[in-house]
Nucleic acid binder design. Sequence first.
DNA 1: ATGACCATGTAAGCAGTTACATGATTAC
DNA 2: GTAATCATGTAACTGCTTACATGGTCAT
Lengths: 199, 199
Amino acid sequence: MSLRHALLGVLSARPMNGYSLARFFLASQNWVWSAPRSQIYSALKSLEDDGLIDASREEGRNGLVTKVYSLSPAGQAELDHWVSTPQPPSPHRDAFAVQALHFDAIDPEDAATVLRAYLDDQRRQLAEWESHRDALASRSTPLLKERLASRPAGEHERIATLKAHVFEGQAMQALARIAWAEQALELVAAGVSVATPTG
Amino acid sequence: MSLRHALLGVLSARPMNGYSLARFFLASQNWVWSAPRSQIYSALKSLEDDGLIDASREEGRNGLVTKVYSLSPAGQAELDHWVSTPQPPSPHRDAFAVQALHFDAIDPEDAATVLRAYLDDQRRQLAEWESHRDALASRSTPLLKERLASRPAGEHERIATLKAHVFEGQAMQALARIAWAEQALELVAAGVSVATPTG
DNA sequence: ATGACCATGTAAGCAGTTACATGATTAC
DNA sequence: GTAATCATGTAACTGCTTACATGGTCAT
C-alpha cells in the first residue's frame, strides 16, 4: 500500500506527470521507495479512480501534451492520516542475511567475494544518501524548494532539518551494514588455512 | 527467488516437514526471511518439481503421517552456488521512511506517537535478535546442534561464530534505527511551541 | 539518421497476502 | 468438551517484475 502514499507524498510538493514521478522511484536511486514506471502509471490511474488525485491534460515546455496529476483535498487528508498513524512492522526479508547464514558452508574466498560486492553496494548507497541528506539540509533540491515556497519562512529550517534527518537515518543504517560486513570479512578469513606462498 | 533458497538453507541442516519449516518463516519471528504457511507449501511443491528437494511420507512421533522434505544433491549444489554468487542489490523499499519524510506536515504529537510505536517495535526486534545471536554463539539452538553433528568438531566454533554474527548484524541495524528514532523524537519536539503547563 | 530522452501505457507472469477448508492429536 | 497445536493444502487477490509497444522531441 505504500507506493500509493509515496506518490501522494511527492505530489504534495507540486503537481507532476507520471514520467517525472517515476524518476523518484527508479531502482538504484537515492530514494526510499523504488518502483518501475509501469507500476507508477497504474497506481496513478487507481489513485485517480479513488479521487485522491486529479488529472489534467497540460502542455509541457515543448508544446507536448502530458497528463499532470495534482493532490486532491481527499488525497491530502489521506496522506496526513496515514503519516499520523503508527503502521504495523512490515515483514522482515533480508536476502543477503540468508546468504550470509551459509558462508560457513562455502569456500571462504567465495564468501569474501560476495562480501566485497556487498560492501561496494553499501558504500555507493551511503554516498548517495549522504549527498541527498546534505542537499536537503542546504535546501538545494528542486522539490524541497517548491515545497518550502508554500510554507512560512519561519518553518523552513525545521522542515529541511526533519527531511534531511530521514536520509541521515538511511546513511546510519548503511554504516551499520558496512561495519558489519567489514567484521564479516575478517571472520570468514579467520578460520582458513594459510595458502601456500605462490609468488 | 530468496524464499526458495531460504528453504533449501533450513533443509541443509536436517529433513523437515512443511509445518516445521513454516515456524522459521512466521511473521514477527526472529528469522531473516518471513513468509506465510500457504507460500511455504507451494514453494516446497515447486522445489520438489525442480528436483531440488525430495519428499517422503513418514510418520511423526505420534504415528501421524507427514510429508518430510530433504535436500537433494542438486538442491545442495544450487544452494552452494547461490550463496557463493554476489547478488544485485535488491530494490529499496522503506515504508517507515516514507512516513517520516512527512513528519514536518503533521501535528508533532502525532509524529511522536508514530515514532514511539516504531521505537517499541525496533526494541522488541533488537531483543529477539540479540537473544538469537547468543543462542547461536552458545550452540544451544536445536537446528544448529543438528547441523554441527554432521561437521568435524574442529569447525564448530567457526560455524557458530559466523552464524551468530549474522544476527549480530541484524542487531546492529536495529540499534542504528533506534538511535535514529531517538534523535527524531527530539527533532519533532524541537520546533513546537511549549504547551501551557497544566499540572 | 542515430541515439538519448520525454511520455504513456499494455500484458504476462511471479511473489506475497489473506481468508478459507479440513481433519487429527494433545492438554485441560 | 473445548481450545491449542500439528499438519496440509486451495482460492482469490494485490503488489511487483519484465518485456514489449508506440510515438514525439532534441542534439549531433
